[in-house]
Design a protein around this nucleic acid. Structure first.
Length: 599
RNA sequence: GGGGGCGUGGUGAAGCCUGGAGUUCACGCCGGCCUGUCAAGCCGGAGGUCGCGGGUUCAAAUCCCGUCGCUCCCGCCA
C-alpha cells in the first residue's frame, strides 16, 4: 500500500505559485473567525500560518464539527489553494496572498481549554509558562528561540567541520574535584557511599584527547555547576567546548572569530568586523572597570591621580597617601537634580566606595559640586580637560583603592550608560588574565583552573600577585561568553603550578596523579576554549535571560514546575545507595506537612 | 547567607500609598445571532479563600509580622 503522508506541504510554505493545487495540511487551530456560516481558521504548524476557509457549502465536515473547533485543536485539512478574493489579501502574513478552501476537515485531536492564551500579546507569568512549557513553545517567541538555538549550533558545527575538528563525547559521570564551583553529585549503587560528579566542563577529558592524538576536538557539552541561579546562569547549561593540539592562543582566537562570525551571520544575517578587538585584562579593568566590558558605549574611566598630586582636598590626599587612586567618568548630560546626584552617591557607597564626588559642568565652564571649593583652578581645569567635559556633563569621581575605584566606576558606567536590548553587537577578547585574584586582605586565590599555562613560571613563583597567565575570555555586550587558555603540557610545570596554587603534593597526586602521569607520555602543546551557547543565543535573540533559550529550564530555586523535579525518592532507593536523609531534614519535612512553619 | 520587586476570577492588568459591600478594564471560557474575516463583530452568561498563616481594627485585597512561590541583584560561579 502506498504511504499516505498526513500532510503534503507545510502551512507556512504556501504561496501564489501553489494556487490551483489540492493540498493536505495538518497542524493546530490558531485563531478562529466563525461567522456562523463560513468560518476562517488560522492553521499553524512549525513552518507558519495559513488561512483555511471552512465553507458549509463545501461540506468539509458536519456543522457541529465546523463550529465546534476550538483553539489548539489538532486538525487535518484537505483543500484547494486559491487566491484570496479582491481586497482580502493579508500583507502581514507570508502566506497572505492565498487561502486554502477546505474540502475535508478531520479533527485529529481536540484540546482542552488552555491555561493561558498562546498569542504574544500578554506576558504570562513565567512559572506558568514553565509548567506548560509544551504549550509555551507553540508560541512565536519560544518557537523562534528553539530555531535560533538549532541554527547557532549548526553554524558552529559547520565551521568546526570545515576546520577538520572531530566531535567527541566525554563522560558525564566523573570524579568530583572540590575546586571551583560546587559539584552536582550522583550516588553510586554499586559502590555504596561513593559518588560521581557531573562535569563542570570536560576540561581534563579534552586534554586527554589531545594526549590521545585527537588534534582537533569539539563537543556540544552539557555542563553542571551547583551554584545559585542568575538570569544568565542555570545549574545545567550547554557549552561549545573545543581544543586543539600544536596550538597556541592565536590559533584558538582565530577559530573563535570564525565561529562568532558564522553564528551571527546565520542568525541575524549580519557580518561582524574581524578581527575582533582585544584588550588586556589590565586595560579592560582600567578603562571599563570590568573584565567583561560592554564596549557598545564609551564613558571610559580616566585616572586623575596625578592631577591631584599636590591637592589640598583631604578626601583625596588621604587616599593617594595610602597608595589609592582618584578616577572618574564623564557620565554625559544626565540632567539630574540634587536628589538624583545624591542617589548616585548612595549607589556608589552600596557598591563599596567610601564616597562619590559629583560635578556638573555649568554654562560658563565652572563646576557645580559640593567639593568644588576645595579644589584649585588647576585641578578643576584638569578634571574638565581629562574627562573631555562640556556644558551639562555630569562627572563622577571616586577616590579609593584601585580595585574599589575600578569596580564602582565600572558599575556606575553600566548603570548610566549601558544600552538596553542587543541590537548592536560588540564582541571582544580579553587576554592576559592574572593568575590570581587578590583579596581585600591581600590573599591570593586562583583565578582559573590549575591547568592553565602561566605566561612565565618565573613570574608565577617570584611575583605571583601580578603574574599573568595565557588565559583569555570572549565577551559580548558586557557578558562573558566563555573562556579558555593555553594549557600546561609539561608535567614538571604542572606540578610546580599545583604547588604555587597551594595544592599539596599528596593532594595533587591523589586527585590528579593519573593526569600528571598522562602528561608524561609525549603531550602536545595544546590550547582551547569553551563558551556558553545559551548566553550567546540569548544575546543574539535579544532575550533578557537564558531560560528563554533553554527548552526546559529550572526556576531560580532549581525546580522544574513541569515535572516536579527535584523530588523525594523511595526509601528503598535510598537503601540501595546506602544513603539516609539527615534527621533535621526529615523533621522539616514533617513540620511542613503538618502545616507548621518549617525551621 | 543577604537585599529589592511581584503574587487580585482561566490569563494580563488597575485597585493597596490614604482601610469601608469582591469593584473595574482587556483577553479567554460557555450560550445565542451572524456566509469574507484576519486581535472578526453583536447580545447574554458563568467564573474569586485578593498565595498561605497570624496580628492590628467596629471593619483588611489594602496596614503590620511571618511564611511559601516566582523574579532581579550581592555573596557564590577555580
Amino acid at each position: 500500500m502506498d504511504h499516505q503522508p498526513m500532510k503534503s506541504i507545510h502551512a507556512g510554505e504556501l504561496r501564489a505559485e501553489h494556487i490551483g493545487q489540492t493540498v493536505t495540511l495538518a497542524g493546530w487551530v490558531g485563531r478562529r473567525r466563525d461567522h456562523g456560516g463560513v468560518a476562517f481558521v488560522d492553521l499553524r504548524d512549525g513552518s507558519g500560518i495559513v488561512q483555511v476557509v471552512l465553507n458549509p457549502d463545501n461540506e468539509p465536515a458536519s456543522d457541529d464539527v465546523l463550529h465546534g473547533l476550538r483553539s489548539e485543536y489538532c486538525i487535518q485539512v484537505e483543500g484547494e489553494v486559491t487566491p484570496r478574493p479582491e481586497g482580502t489579501v493579508n500583507r502581514d502574513l507570508p502566506t497572505g496572498e492565498v487561502e486554502v478552501v477546505a474540502s475535508n476537515l478531520t479533527v485529529l485531536s481536540p484540546a482542552a481549554a488552555l491555561p493561558f492564551q498562546l498569542d504574544d500579546r500578554s506576558d504570562v507569568d513565567e512559572s506558568l509558562r514553565l509548567k506548560y512549557r509544551y504549550l509555551d513553545m507553540r508560541r512565536g517567541r519560544m518557537a523562534a528561540n528553539l530555531v535560533a538555538r538549532s541554527k547557532a549550533i549548526r553554524a558552529m558545527r559547520n565551521v568546526l567541520d570545515r576546520e577538520a575538528f572531530l566531535e567527541v563525547e566525554t563522560p558525564t559521570l566523573i570524579a568530583s574535584t572540590p575546586e571551583g564551583a560546587r559539584d552536582m553529585l550522583v550516588p553510586s549503587r554499586l559502590r555504596k557511599g561513593q559518588f560521581y560528579a557531573l562535569p563542570q566542563s570536560p576540561q581534563l577529558f579534552k586534554q586527554l584527547l589531545m594526549i590521545g592524538g585527537v588534534e582537533r576536538y569539539y563537543q556540544v557539552a552539557k555542563c553542571y555547576r551547583d551554584e545559585d541561579f542568575r538570569a544568565d546562569r542555570q545549574v545545567e547549561f550547554t557549552q561549545l567546548d573545543l581544543e586543539g593540539s600544536f596550538w597556541g592562543q592565536e590559533d584558538v582566537l582565530t577559530v573563535l572569530e570564525k565561529i562568532a562570525a558564522e553564528v551571527v551571520r546565520d542568525l541575524r544575517g549580519e557580518d561582524i568586523e574581524l578581527p575582533l578587538p582585544r584588550l588586556t585584562w589590565t586595560e579592560a579593568m582600567d578603562r571599563y572597570g570590568s573584565d567583561k566590558p560592554d564596549l557598545r558605549f564609551g564613558m571610559e574611566i580616566v585616572d586623575l591621580s596625578d592631577a591631584f598630586a599636590d591637592t589640598e582636598f583631604k578626601a583625596f590626599t588621604g587616599v593617594l597617601g595610602d597608595g589609592g587612586t582618584v578616577r572618574g567618568i564623564n557620565a554625559g548630560a544626565l540632567g539630574l537634580a540634587r536628589s538624583g546626584l545624591d542617589a548616585l552617591t548612595t549607589r556608589a557607597q552600596e557598591l563599596g566606595a567610601k564616597g562619590l564626588v559629583w560635578m556638573v559642568v555649568e554654562e560658563d565652564g565652572s563646576l557645580r559640586s559640593p567639593v568644588s571649593k576645595f579644589l584649585s583652578d588647576e585641578e578643576r581645569g584638569a578634571i574638565v580637560t581629562r574627562l573631555d567635559a562640556t556644558y551639562g556633563d555630569t562627572l563622577l569621581i571616586v577616590a579609593d583603592a584601585t580595585k574599589v575605584a575600578r569596580a564602582v566606576l565600572g558599575q556606575l558606567r553600566l548603570d548610566l550608560g549601558q544600552p538596553t536590548g542587543h541590537d548592536e553587537l560588540s564582541f571582544a577578547f580579553i587576554v592576559d588574565f592574572p593568575v590570581f585574584d587578590v583579596g581585600d586582605d591581600g590573599s591570593l586565590s586562583p583565578a582559573h583552573h590549575p591547568f592553565t599555562a602561566p605566561a612565565s613560571l618565573e613570574d608565577l613563583v617570584n611575583t605571583p600577585e601580578s603574574a599573568v597567565s595565557k588565559a583569555y575570555d570572549l565577551v559580548l555586550n558586557g557578558s562573558e561568553l566563555g573562556s579558555g587558555s593555553v594549557r600546561i603540557h609539561d608535567p614538571a610545570m604542572q606540578a610546580k603550578v599545583f604547588e604555587v596554587m597551594g595544592i599539596s603534593d599528596e593532594d595533587a597526586e591523589s586527585r590528579f596523579g593519573w593526569f600528571l602521569e598522562a602528561l608524561r607520555y609525549g603531550t602536545p602543546p595544546h590550547a582551547g576554549f569553551a563558551f556558553g551557547i545559551d548566553r550567546l543565543v540569548a544575546i543574539l535573540q535579544g532575550e533578557p535571560n537564558i531560560r528563554e533559550i533553554i527548552p526546559f529550564p529550572k526556576t531560580q530555586t532549581g525546580a522544574d514546575p513541569l515535572t516536579g523535579s527535584p523530588g523525594r525518592v523511595d526509601e528503598s532507593q535510598l537503601e540501595e545507595l546506602g544513603i539516609e536523609i539527615a534527621p533535621a531534614v526529615l523533621e522539616s519535612w514533617a513540620a511542613a506537612e503538618a502545616g507548621d512553619t518549617p525551621e
